[in-house]
Nucleic acid binder design. Structure first.
Lengths: 337, 337
DNA sequence: TTGTAAGCGTTATCAC
DNA sequence: GTGATAACGCTTACAA
């Protein structure tokens, strides 16, 4: 039988109210002597308050729900760690859910979260969510931080990097290295990340007076295997290009494989850039030039923000939080004569 | 205001008991007409039962606690995914905690789990846990599955691979390729994984009549950076060796870096093997020869097992579940003349 | 087939 | 400073 507040109360010879006061550190309303006596009994018995019962009254679970597409993409463990660390520091814990970019799976997880009264949620890549589900979240007033998501709602808090700027930066870099035919390997076509990066691509093309060629645009759904297939198809089109921008590093690895299959040398014959800067990028051969997203910091920021929402400290918080990217120049881009 | 079972009951003109029966799919005790009427009201109002209130009565949260050392080691996302997928399929969700091989951090998480009445826990690499904490877990009767842990207790259920056999297999493989001076790069010295693999190493040495040389044994705590440092130190000792076995692939990457720094060619001058077969191993140059651990399957198995414990289906379950490894021969091992 | 009512372990309100 | 007691939203005997 688990020990409850009632047991502690009778053991200490006080009321449960008093015990409750002690465990909640209500500074007033209990004498020092009583406090100490109660603490002793609590410790002697290894008493742990029942968080469920507590939650029933307070309507808060001290749990942060984290919903992301795919934990095996190495970008997300870093991101999660940022959340985890921050949450732990604030006495929250995080429940990890993978939605797999599948609206119904995401809904199942979101339902689970509301049923369990999670205190807040960090929702990454909320691109496929149905309007209905979104409506429901609003109705339930879930404290939510959206990350890399297209949810643009004047209420919602969004965290992301400046994708436009990042892509424009690489485009200009590639241009400066002599590239004019630049392919674009997107992730999930309608996702926020891909869409905004594509806009950056178009904008840069325009600025650099390079005509846009639809045939140089392919999509790999952010996953390695699909990217490999997409790049094969791109090559099969026989439309010449000297560089390719990949919307994440995993897809860049897929691209590497596709080029290797065809004996196309990187970077001599083709230059490749990625996005994310996952830890393995610098261990590829050649070392991948890529745009670094501060995954861990984004996790931290997301957690801090959602906790601030939960605790009602919303003064200084911006609706739109933008972190910086950094172009990591390594060896996968070469000059074109 | 959130809608409760009472609201549904009055809206449907029945008692809350009836509503409860309906949402719990108690097949008997409610007429088809009533059932349908109640469902309609539930759906019209988007009613979601309060899992907290439910948990208070049933003492079960349908949450599985997952405690692992470090989610950024790419082995764990695969493992977690196996758990997540299986849990979801059984209507459980998982709460992810990183213990960082720190006993006090692990205790905080474990406490959180018991306070929240998690239904079960999957505890990976439980190597640093204090006896006291362990004792507490037993007292609270937490349904726990230990993975790659040294917790050897006739009660506890353990899941792991046959580390002895795996290491002996590579050792014989290296031997067959002509290697006689083989170094050992361990993870955390007293961890279950490292200790058992080291035993396998000793055993193989013995079988192959190779004298053991303590100077060829170093430790890198399972992390890339420490492994790099450890290998540098190993090289500084000037004790010749032609191959090194690393206790995980992340450390093998660290070893690659250390060898690269010194202009030592892999595999021409030094052969390297890893352990885990994380997805990036085949993308390294040279492609890493390594021992594959079935991470996803281990996750699945862990989740299935803990769910079986929770649901009291313990007949067929073994206390000691051992999965197979597989030697993935790639390009980081060469012949010695 | 349906409903009443007692609990689950807390917090919160209000007396004393 | 301390303690009854009523919630919180649900499940589950037990009755009807």
């Amino acid at each position: 039988m688990k020990i409850t507040i009632t047991d502690i109360a009778s053991l200490a010879g006080v009321s449960i109210t008093t015990v409750s006061r002690v465990i909640n550190n209500k500074s007033k309303g209990v004498s020092e002597t009583t406090r100490q006596k109660v603490w002793r009994v609590i410790e002697e018995n290894n008493y742990q308050p029942n968080a469920i019962a507590r939650g029933l009254v307070t309507k808060s679970s001290k749990i942060i729900g984290l919903l992301l597409p795919d934990i095996t993409n190495p970008y997300y463990p870093q991101f999660s760690k940022g959340i985890e660390d921050t949450a732990t520091r604030h006495n929250y814990n995080v429940i990890l859910c993978e939605g797999g970019n599948d609206p119904s799976k995401e809904k199942v997880h979101l339902d689970f979260m509301t049923e369990h009264y999670v205190s807040g949620v960090v929702y990454s890549n909320a691109d496929v969510i149905s309007d209905e589900t979104l409506e429901q979240m609003k109705k339930k007033e879930m404290k939510t931080v959206f990350v890399d998501s297209k949810i643009i709602d004047d209420q919602a808090i969004n965290i992301h990097v400046d994708n436009h700027k990042a892509i424009e930066e690489v485009m200009h870099y590639l241009y400066s290295r002599g590239h004019r035919k630049i392919a674009f390997l997107g992730g999930i076509k309608d996702s926020y990340s891909t869409a905004t990066r594509f806009e950056g691509y178009l904008k840069a093309l325009d600025d650099l007076f390079i005509p846009f060629d639809q045939r140089l645009v392919v999509y790999g759904d952010f996953v390695l295997e699909k990217a490999r297939v997409a790049v094969r198809q791109l090559l099969d089109k026989q439309v010449p290009f000297s560089a390719i921008i990949c919307c994440n590093d995993m897809m860049a690895v897929g691209a590497y494989e596709a080029f290797n299959e065809r004996q196309i040398k990187i970077p001599e014959q083709i230059s490749v850039v990625g996005f994310d800067d996952i830890y393995m990028s610098k261990h590829l051969t050649p070392r991948l030039t890529t745009i670094k997203q501060p995954a861990y910091e984004m996790g931290q920021k997301s957690a801090e923000t959602v906790i601030a929402m939960i605790e009602g400290r919303l003064e200084g918080i911006k609706k739109n939080i933008i972190l910086d990217t950094e172009l990591m120049i390594r060896d996968s881009v070469a000059d074109i004569q």
